[in-house]
Design a protein around this nucleic acid. Structure first.
Lengths: 248, 248
DNA sequence: AAGTGGTCTAGACCACAGC
DNA sequence: CTGTGGTCTAGACCACTTT
């Protein structure tokens, strides 16, 4: 951990110990230099971190101030997490069943959205995500594993050093990082309401009339390359999608 | 404009003039110091700005690299905009029809979510949002105004200096800022799929089987107070909801 | 070992707020 | 004027990658 990081922690500790009220002025940068025994640059780095976390704000010529509500904001899907982690964050135990792994030619939309070279093949993973530990009141007798999502993820075959026959990792993000050296950084998601498809009704036991949320996503890695083309169908019965929206 | 800012611009100019390909290594920080005649700190500030804009990425020990696509990222609903602005951003002309303004007791959920004091009344606005200028191919003959959303917004009556009988402003955000001194800063949104309600089918001419996206929202002002309790039902036919999701 | 980016220090001057 | 945060310089050492 860097000096600036630990300085940030120390400043946070100071705030809580002094029981500073919301809106009040913090000590000056010079004061923190002496208090923490670090240079001004390091103090400023720490303050920048706190500012980015929306805990403080700074006004040139006036000082540094504590924001009104240092309350934590529960994060929503504006934060890109694996479905595994999302399920866990709801206090459920994630399960994965691989339905199929297949190699196909990309659709024209895939070619366009992933900027694929000619002749590239796509590997498609179809998986059912479910969870144990659904709230007892909602549990169907005799079944304690609930359908959460149906995930169809496609990636260029050339990403894989060897053909993937099994995925032992819990999340696709982890698999790509471990085996392909691909670090997923962001996704552009289009969200729309859908009905369960015939395939899902017949093969997955999803109720016929159930409404699902379709998240169509293009995932980009840390080099800005489009990597994953995915369609995730969520049952919003157990998992609710929250979004934190900020005014520009 | 700071030196770092202009250094950033110069680096951008350099990238375009040299026609650097995506993924290629940029000159080192030392090279930029000499090229731009500034200190390393300033070069790094400029590179940090470019990194935050996701145009470049840096790897310790290796170098600085151009990302694959230096394209701008279209913003999605993680940015809190008024529905008016959202409709405009799709190149359509927004229309608003006020259906009803009524004063009621809050529901228990409103009391809890908005932290309402005893005896507080709620003002509820029901509005239909539509748009002219839908793509011609999708236009119903004789009708060139398309249903976009049905909005039910509730606010504490005590916010209003005088009872609102009319809203001439286009967006609720503008009305609150002008007449109530309330500046909306963020919203916590829960998104779920729904069917058109009977009321919407019979009164708004929404097709019976149409799937809608329900955005249930609590809006907070710049003092952290919960202010608006709203349910917006969107037809995703003309308006698509995009979200930019970022890895933490 | 050499070269890269990551972090930290010490010191300076500038821009803005308030007395 | 003083004190605040904002910016910039020069120099040092560290961590990681490549030769």
């Amino acid at each position: 951990m860097s000096l600036a990081q630990s300085a940030k922690e120390n400043i946070l500790t100071y705030i809580t110990e002094e029981e500073l009220s919301p809106g009040v002025a913090l000590p000056t940068e010079a004061a923190f230099m002496e208090m923490l025994g670090v240079s001004r640059h390091t103090v400023r780095e720490a303050l920048i971190l706190l500012e980015q976390e929306r805990l403080i704000y700074r006004v040139q010529g006036k000082g540094t101030f504590l924001k009104r509500k240092p309350q934590q904001i529960e994060s929503g899907i504006e934060k890109l997490e694996s479905i595994t982690d999302i399920i866990r964050s709801f206090g459920l135990e994630p399960r994965t069943k691989m339905v199929k792994i297949e190699v196909q030619d990309p659709t024209p939309d895939m070619v366009r959205r992933l900027d694929l070279p000619r002749g590239e093949k796509m590997v498609t993973f179809k998986r059912v995500r479910s969870a144990q530990g659904a709230p007892a009141a909602d549990r169907t007798p005799g079944v304690d594993e609930e359908f959460i999502a149906y995930c169809v993820d496609s990636m260029p075959l050339s990403l894989f050093p060897s053909f993937p026959t099994e995925i032992e990792e819990e999340s696709m993000f982890q698999y790509l990082a471990h085996h392909c050296g691909v670090v997923i950084e962001r996704a552009v998601t289009t969200i729309s309401p859908t009905r369960a498809t015939y395939e899902m009704v017949s093969e997955l036991g999803v109720e016929q009339d159930r409404l699902l949320l379709l998240l169509h996503q293009i995932h980009y890695d840390n080099r800005g390359r489009p990597v994953i083309y995915s369609n995730d169908y969520f049952d919003t019965h157990f998992i609710q999608f929250k979004i934190n929206r900020l005014r520009p």
